[in-house]
Each structure stands twice: as structure tokens, then as C-alpha cells.
Amino acid sequence: MAIDYKVLKEGGFMRQKDAGYFSLRLHIVGGQIDAEKVIKIAELSKKYGKGYLHLTTRQGIEIPFVHLENVNAIKEELAAYGVKTGVCGPRVRTVVACQGEQVCPRAMIDCEGLADKIDEKYYGKALPHKFKFSITGCPAGCAKPEENDLGVQGAIVPHYDANQCTLCGICKEVCYCGAIDIIDDEVTCDLSLCNNCGECVMNCPMDCWLPKIRGYIVFLGGKMGKKPRFADVLPGIIQSDEELFQVIDKTLEFFIEHGGKRERFGDTIDRVGLDKLLAHIKEE
């Protein structure tokens, strides 16, 4: 019987150098998984693999050394525990995310929730080449949005209200960008220097700095690998999930239309032009 490796790859079975063995990639979103599922996965690695798991560079889990004859059996057992197999090849890959506002004091958005929504809508979608999403809570960028095909970062635009201000200077002190200054007992903010990190809002003891806008900054066309490319930034701050998903839809539409076979999105942008992509995203 001929083995259709393409079909196996779509189902997350990565062919190993050892003939007949696969490293089975699992479907994990934003690096979060129920502890109970981890226990089941560990048990299955003992039954069908070599009793160890590989934690991938993109927050995933693989079970190495699964033999071809056990492919269907392990898939069925995983499915019974609610664990799906992952994907490889030219399609939307694992969505990575930092822990976001539920855990991190600096995060400005619900990264896990957004990762789930993106995963639900796009995971496994066929494209000219692999396509990686990343969601990160703030400009510290722990989930590295600049090196993903499409990165989303939390952002706020601060607004100053002098009401309770004691001119303590903490905001000026914590501002990474030198956007805030205090001249003659007056607090000023140059928003053109602001990186939207929200430190002023989070630090002000008197709550004089408030988030005027809370939303997303989108990064386009980043990648690592043999020819790394830092992402381009979509100008402006996206203020709703609806708008964000429109941008994602438009971006993927552009990639499907213009992307060459096995051409990464960043290379498509360089070949076709960032201006064309931005114009396409803006189109109604």
C-alpha cells in the first residue's frame, strides 16, 4: 500500500528520519492545555511512542516515534480525550500567544481568547505557504509578533486628566519613549513618540492617565528561518475584534491572490509591494 505522506502531513504526522516513524504534532492553541489532557498525552506517548514528549518552538507538543501502523489507533485515542492532531505544510499553523491579561500585569488584551478565535476561524486553512499567527499582550512582545506572518499586539493610547495629579513624575519616569515630560508644573505627552505600552496608565498612583483607546497593533510578513524578515507594521490601532478580523481576512485574501507557490508572506510583500497590501486591506 502506497503511503500518502501529504495526507499524513495535513494531519500533523511529521515523517522522521527513521523509516516508518512519525513525530505526531498535536493541536494546541496559545500554549494552553488542560492538565488532564497532558496526562493522557503522556500516557499515549508511553503506549505508542518512546515515553517522552517534545515541546516545540511554537508552544506545541509532539509525540515522537509513533509507528505508521499505529497512526489511526493513536488518533482515535487522542480524539476520545478531546485532543486533535496538528497540521504541517502550506497552511495556517499553530497560533502562539503570551498569557495575556488574565495573568500578566503588563498585558493589555485577552491573548488567549483572541488566539482561540483566530484558531477557530483559520487554523489549517490552505495558503501558498505556511502562515503563522502570534498574539502578544504589550510591546514587550514576548510572543514575538514581529517574526510571525501576522502578529497582533495589545496597545493603548493614553489620555491625561490633570484632576488628581500631584506632579509626582512617575509617568515621566516609567515612559520608555520619552513621550511624557513635565515642564513648569504641566504634564505633556507627545503621542507621536508613544509606543502604546500603557506604562503611564498602569503606574499612575492617582489614576490621572487613562486608556483613551484600547486595541490592537498588527504586524505583517515577519518570519525567521534561512532568510529572516522583520514584520511591517500596519499603521494605526485597530479598535474592535470585528475590524481585526476584517484585516486578517483581507491579508489572507491578498496572500492567496498574490503569493507564489511556497513563497512566504513577507517575500510576497517584498515582491508585490507593501503599499499594494495596505491598499488592499483598506478596501471596503
Binding site: P105, I170, E173, V174, M202, N203
Partner: peptide
């Protein structure tokens, strides 16, 4: 100043 007031 960058960490303590915020943690408080």
C-alpha cells in the same frame, strides 16, 4: 520608582 508604586 519604575516598579514599586505599580506593584503597590
Amino acid at each position: 520608582m519604575k516598579n514599586v508604586p505599580r506593584s503597590i
